[in-house]
């Protein structure tokens, strides 16, 4: 099987440095990591390769330092890694990013399965993978929590989707694109032997020219969406004193907790 794992490098949201007043988030110069959802992407792709043979190619669109994310992918066990990077591609919105990724997938060649995470923790649009599937014209199976049956010979995949109030079993033909959620597996840590191999690996970097894209087709000029600012969610906290005797106060407290959907 030829499997492509879509990987993004994101800021480490656990280590964003908030200013002392706590109103600004600073990702500049901070640690960057493999998008946590894509750790599940990589584990899914590697497990599929381990079961069915073939090759996993990790594909990442990002700045040159995003090669670090691909090194992690190699250390976890993917066979090849490609970085798509060009200064002209900066500030691409999700649709433009999808177009770039589709061009890169075309250059990689034939594929049976593309795996992506349910979203990236920075933009959190959950749109790019959907748009990649649409542009490629392949079925999309999103929010996959379990791969029931992956049958390369029969060219089908059966997966369980984790929806808000249901689990939905879907069978699709291959090639297909799936996005995975964290319930699907437990991502492995990079192994020490994998780290040794990854550190020595040279990761090819594909630019606009390599993909036959014009600089006007990528980046902020080609994008309809522009991000103005990124701030942490506002936190509203109130104190409400409940008067009355213990029984009345308890009843009021329970009513309020139900009202606020805490219980």
């Amino acid at each position: 099987m030829n499997i492509i794992a879509l990987v993004k490098q994101t800021p480490d949201t656990a280590q964003l440095s908030a200013s002392m007043d706590g109103v600004k988030l600073s990702a500049e110069g901070g640690p960057r990591i493999v998008n946590p959802w894509d750790e599940y992407t990589l584990e899914t792709a590697i497990q599929a390769r381990e079961e069915h043979g073939g090759k996993v190619t990790a594909l990442c669109l990002g700045p040159p330092e995003a090669a670090d994310a691909l090194k992690t992918a190699l250390a976890m066990g993917v066979d090849e890694a490609v970085l798509v990077s060009d200064p002209a591609m900066a500030y691409s919105d999700s649709l433009t990013s999808a177009r770039i990724l589709v061009a890169a997938i075309g250059k990689i060649g034939t594929f049976d399965l593309i795996v992506g995470g349910r979203a990236a923790i920075d933009g959190n649009t959950a749109a790019t993978t959907v748009q990649v599937a649409a542009l490629l014209g392949v079925p999309l199976v999103s929010y996959v929590a379990e791969l029931r049956n992956l049958d390369p010979a029969d060219r089908t995949i059966s997966a369980v989707r984790l929806l808000e109030k249901a689990r939905e079993t879907v069978t699709s033909r291959l090639p297909a694109l799936i996005t995975v959620v964290k319930e699907i597996n437990e991502p492995r840590y990079p192994s020490l032997i994998g780290i040794r191999k990854a550190a020595r690996a040279s990761i090819p970097v594909w630019t606009c020219a390599d993909l036959g894209l014009d600089a006007t087709e990528v980046g902020s000029n080609a994008s309809g969406v522009e991000w103005q600012s990124e701030l942490p969610p506002l936190r509203e906290a109130n104190i409400e004193m409940i008067d009355g005797g213990p029984e009345d106060a308890a009843r009021t407290l329970v009513d309020r907790l139900i009202e606020e959907k805490v219980i």
Partner: peptide, 16 residues
Amino acid sequence: LSEEHRMVERMVYDFA
């Protein structure tokens, strides 16, 4: 630190 060492460092801290 070399790239290899940085990857070891990251993996060990993630493990911890």
